[in-house]
Write a protein that binds this DNA or RNA. Sequence first.
DNA 1: ACCTAAACCTGGGCGC
DNA 2: TGCGCCCAGGTTTAGG
Length: 269
Amino acid sequence: MPELPEVETVRRQLAEEVVGERVVAVEVRQEKSYLGAREIGEEVAEVRRRGKYLFIAFESGAGLAVHLKMTGRLVISKPGQQFDYETAKHTRVVMRLASGRALYFWDTRMFGYVHYLPAIGEAEEKVKNKLGPEPWEITQEELYRKLQKTGRTIKDTILDQSMLAGVGNIYANDGLWKSGILPQRRSRDLSKQEVGKLLRSLREVLKKGLSTNGASDNSYVDAYGEKGAYQNEFLVYGKTKGECPQCGRELNYGKVGGRGTWWCDKCQS
DNA sequence: ACCTAAACCTGGGCGC
DNA sequence: TGCGCCCAGGTTTAGG
């Protein structure tokens, strides 16, 4: 799923491709996926990201807020593209560009969206206010203090975007394994040292995700329609009946906070 | 206030 | 082959 590394990969590529481009028309094929003005005609100034949210800012101050949720893709047309987004069943929104190219929003499950907002800066500020810091914007001490205040499991807590922005199920599972902490542990029971280990581990797995252009185990592809490679680097995520990368024992699977969770009983405590 | 669970959706995988 | 069922999980919302 698109988590911080996946959304950041898309952001970087889009910034490369569409800054300075003009969006001349928006074609909405699925009403649910789009909100706001259709006649845009504005130039892209910047592509920004906060947590898993993407913001395409225009010179005028207006902009597009995009969330990919589970199965969303934002793909720029390219000659010889293997998959034809122009005619694809799940292409929900087409943004026509002055250069003749198109930016496609494709989403099988329709959880994701593109919203046109007259004041993108304000909308972005609102999102920022409800989200917590990204893992590199918080210190071990600050995170420790926040964790002390909750009785929820540590996995629940790091998935909570108002606590920490950008971590989803893949990087939560792998980060917890890397830190040697059981997902079911209560947040407030973690020592300061464990919190430090967890924070470093989360940063490491997110960085690995970023350097491999994200995880394409399911629907995700980058802005060029290409798969990432983090699915080849999974530590424990998705490895039902798989082995612990460290001790080789069979991994455990269960639900924590209603989500699929994998861990090693020996290497995590 | 704090926490849990359902809802939003579709496609893929499974058992029969 | 195909039908019905369950599952995937980011975020919001409703309810305990």
